[in-house]
Write a protein that binds this DNA or RNA. Structure first.
Length: 855
RNA sequence: GCGGGCGUGGCGGAACUGGCAGACGCACUGGAUUUAGGUUCCAGCGAUGCAAAUCAUGGGGGUUCAAAUCCCCCCGCCCGCACCA
């Protein structure tokens, strides 16, 4: 029995496609389709998670191509980033070389998978030919007021002299140095994404081919909330504290004010109050991560200040500095109303502050209503609130807003959670920010003619700090304005900068400008973007902003870069640990004679949790080994078939084995057909036996179902349908007349349908079936409408909603006919016992429910 | 903490707009073929039960002729939280 020779076949077809330029995209009159997968960071080797992503993208690209679309399907490298620098520090290899080698490895792996990319458009963002254009964009943003410099807080590692990412801060210490992290204020470049807050929020509604959850996450991230700014006086001082609140209606329930540790007033007080300074320092040790801050125990420091209530000057409330108040949101100060906010309530209980209810729940008695452990946060009727008494919450908000505005003690306003995008990084391996600092002229943009500002090659990583800043000559330049001695900016861009416009570069990857406008206007927006849900907010929001910023600067007339988005799940694998707790690679684990899992030396191995594949836990599979053993197509089909694409997938050895067996079954069906096949192109006789019609129906139903499934990204279901068709073809009644014709029809359909998933095998099948064309150039099959619908349907018969039997009737039979047939079923008749049913509900072609009185 | 999501046999999952729960596969069991292993083929496979039947979609409640699907409460797990990409 022959096995499918994937080694020969995959190499052969990859060569044929390459030689024919099958996947090169050109602008054309045909309708375009731009398929894009989130490009990888070249971290070393391709990860199975990447392959899952690209397999889906390839399926879409090949499917749309077969449907006659002019498809653009490019690939490139998000090549700047921290890991290259870490490798340089750890392994004494230059980031550029490390990156180049990784790209070369990973490109080879992608090519082995047979993905239909237009390789002539490959880009790597670390090349000056790429990043020079974003330097120009930055200068344009600067002119347009979309880029500016401001001080912001960062995690500082005092040993390494570097800024740390939140993920590099572990329990308040630098991940490598172990030093206690400090917070520092640093002048940083920012992009004014908040200028587009409303637009970015409103346009989410237009993204109807985006997952609901991603739109929701972005909506919450932008976090528009209507509220008020309220001025509290400070007793005995000529000073005011401005707070932002979404609940100005609860102002009479205020029992304290809380300032962010970074609030200017808090900082000023700390200068003369060592205990407060120590409290602030403690808060700072939490780092900048919002998750850590919010999860930490809520703590406050009581300052000697008392705030004067804006609506009642006789009332005073204490002023705290609290670790949970963020300087970045609102005004960096809040008023606490414990009765109607859970966090405030916990704070009030802890520091024995009064809890004054001012909103009465519907039906509650004002004389007895009290707040226990739970704040009342819903709508109700205001009381204890002077002029607001008796109003509902929305009406009270309006009333207090007007009152504050009249008295000059505040105003209604809208706050966003969204903050401007800090793009400065104190790192070497990134795109240099093209400005020059001159002692006389201040900040001077690098003249466009001098772009790109290239990274110096000769840098060292053997000392702490940013190698760019330490470089002996690079930063020293003449000021373009006055000609005097000046210094380059040594910060580089956040790597999200590169990924915020790469989809535009792909439209004309070798253009002398950032992109050719006509090409971009032809290809954009991306019709189908595919990537991990972990990018749901940052990358996707930055790209949406960037596109708008480019529009404002006259680059392109486009608002939304991604018309369709699909977010796929992760690839998980079992973890294994040895007796001493070390992680083990899957291939280090075996079964012993008794079926227990052991390592190479026969020691007991414990099975850990199912987790995302990661190098640190060693629960990874080697892609090259998989492709060596099973071939690219088997890996591709397995990744598509085992789980719904949006859900996580567990990689198992048994799973890929099963897929490999199917690949061979499919190949045998074509290479060793049960009956000799008729020649290519012979028409199927008009009249064939009923047994053959059944198979032909299966074939055409499969076309319809698979097409529908692919449209809806139900790839696992599409694979199941094709397997059902294969089962039907294996059971072909070969002795019937025209069986061979129906078999050829079914096999050709199977090859076409499986083409986007297993392109090499499909091409091989197509050739084996006698075709001289390339399957990749064949159109997508269309089902015969006559053969898609069955003539009879099976209708479920229920009694009181419980299945009691089924009846076969012609499709679309009259309700009366269904009713009669249902009542005639012996099981039903028995339960009726001669009585008439109370009701019979008939759902066409589906169900008949006989309702019998239960009395 | 906040925001988002998920939960169906031993396992991955299927089930359209509320209409036959378990398609398709993995694993397993029995049988056939094979020198052996593997492959291949046939049959079985949610639970209890001889059967009739009953019970089953994380748990509890509700709406409905009918609920995996809609509503309320609870539990568990996963993802994101702004300098990882």
């Amino acid at each position: 029995m022959s096995r499918y020779n994937f080694r020969e076949s995959e190499q052969k077809w990859q060569r044929v496609w390459r030689e024919r330029g099958s996947f090169a995209a050109h602008t054309a009159a045909r309708p375009k389709y731009y398929v894009l997968e989130m490009f990888p960071y070249p971290s070393g080797k391709l990860h199975v998670g990447h392959v899952r992503n690209y397999t889906m993208g390839d399926l879409v690209a090949r499917y749309r191509r077969a449907q006659g679309f002019n498809v653009l399907h490019p690939m490139g490298w998000d090549a700047f980033g921290l890991p290259a620098e870490n490798a340089a520090i750890a392994g004494n290899v230059h980031p550029a070389l490390w990156t180049r080698d990784n790209i070369s490895t990973m490109r080879g792996q992608l090519q082995r998978m047979g993905f239909a990319y237009d390789w002539s458009r490959e880009i790597a963002t670390c090349h000056p030919e790429y990043y020079r254009h974003e330097q120009k964009m930055f200068l344009d943003f600067l002119k347009a007021g979309l880029a500016y410099r401001k001080e912001s807080w960062v995690n500082w590692d005092p040993v390494e002299h570097t800024v740390l990412a939140n993920e590099q801060v572990i329990d308040g210490r630098g991940w490598r140095s172990g030093a206690l992290v400090e917070k520092r204020l640093l002048a940083q470049w920012n992009l004014r994404i908040t200028a587009f807050s409303d637009e970015l929020l409103a346009a989410l509604e237009t993204l109807d081919r985006w997952p609901e959850r991603v739109r929701l996450m972005q909506e919450k991230w932008i976090g528009r909330s209507e509220g008020a700014r309220v001025l509290f006086g400070v007793a005995g001082r000529d000073e005011a504290i401005e707070v932002f609140t979404t609940r100005p209606d609860t102002l009479y329930g205020a029992s304290f004010l809380a300032l962010s540790p970074h609030h200017p007033l808090a900082q000023r007080l700390a200068e003369r109050d060592p205990a407060l300074a120590e409290f602030i320092a403690e808060c700072d040790r939490l780092g900048t991560s919002e998750a850590v801050i919010e999860a930490a125990e809520k703590r406050g420091y009581r300052t000697p200040l008392e705030a004067v209530h804006p609506l009642d000057p006789a009332r005073r409330v204490p002023v705290y500095v609290a670790n949970f108040v963020l300087m970045e949101y609102g005004t960096g100060a809040i008023f606490g109303c414990p009765a109607h906010d859970q966090r405030d309530l916990e704070f009030a209980r802890k520091y024995a502050l009064p809890v004054i209810p001012v909103v009465l729940p519907p039906g509650a008695d004002p004389a007895t209503f009290e707040i226990g452990d739970t704040a009342f946060v819903d709508d109700g009727t205001l009381y204890n609130s002077d002029f607001m008494n008796g109003l509902s919450v929305p009406k009270a908000k309006r009333a207090v807003g007007e009152r504050l505005e009249q008295s000059g003690r505040g105003e209604r306003t809208i706050a966003y959670r969204l903050r401007d995008w800090g793009v400065s990084r104190q790192r070497y391996w990134g795109c240099p920010i093209p400005v020059i600092h001159c002692a006389r002229c201040g900040i001077v943009p690098v003249p466009e003619a001098q772009l790109p500002v290239e990274l110096p090659q000769d840098v060292s990583f053997d000392a702490p700090g940013n190698p760019l800043a330490r470089h002996p000559t690079w930063k020293h330049v003449a000021c373009p304005a006055c000609g005097g001695a000046a210094e380059r900016e040594t910060d580089t861009f956040d790597t999200f900068f590169e990924s915020s416009w790469y989809f535009l570069r792909f439209c004309s990857a070798r253009a002398a400008t950032a992109f050719d406008r006509a090409a971009a206007e032809y290809w954009m927006p991306v019709d189908q973007y595919i990537g991990g849900v972990e990018h749901a907010v940052l990358h996707l929001l930055y790209s949406r902003f960037f596109t708008r910023a480019l529009k404002r600067c006259g680059y392109i007339d486009l608002d939304e870069p991604f018309a369709g988005l699909f977010t796929q799940g992760m690839v998980l694998h079992q973890t294994y640990q040895s007796e001493n707790g070390e992680w083990l690679f899957p291939e280090e684990v075996q079964e012993d004679a008794t079926g227990r899992l052991v390592d190479g030396e026969g020691r007991r191995v414990t099975i850990g949790r199912l987790e995302k594949m990661s190098k640190s836990k060693k629960n990874v599979v080697d892609l090259d080994a998989i492709v060596d053993t099973y071939g690219a197509d088997t890996a591709r089909l397995y990744l598509l078939s085992d789980s719904p694409p949006e859900r996580d997938l567990e990689w198992t050895a048994a799973g890929i084995d099963g897929t490999w067996r199917y690949v061979n079954r499919l190949w045998r069906l074509v290479s060793e057909p049960a009956v000799p096949l008729p020649p290519v192109g012979r028409a199927i006789p008009p009249a064939v036996p009923a047994e053959i019609v059944v198979v032909r129906r299966a074939t055409h139903k499969t076309i319809a179902a698979v097409t529908d499934d692919l449209e809806k990204f139900h790839f696992n279901r599409a694979v199941a349908r094709i397997r059902e068709l294969t089962n039907a073809l294996e059971d072909m009644p070969v002795d019937e007349p025209a069986a061979a014709d129906a078999l050829r029809e079914g096999l050709e359909v199977a090859a076409r349908l499986i083409g986007p998933m297993m392109p090499h095998l499909a091409e091989e099948m197509w050739q084996e079936l006698g075709h001289t064309t390339l399957l990749v150039d064949e159109p997508w099959p269309k089902p015969d409408p006559q053969l898609v619908q069955d003539e009879t349907v099976t209708i479920a018969v229920q009694v009181n909603g419980k299945l009691r039997g089924t009846i076969d009737l012609p499709r679309d039979a009259a309700n009366s006919e269904v009713r009669e047939a249902a009542l005639a079923l012996p099981q039903v008749a028995r339960m009726l016992a001669g009585k008439a049913p109370e009701n019979v509900i008939v759902v066409q072609n589906r169900v008949a429910n006989v309702v019998i009185g239960r009395a």
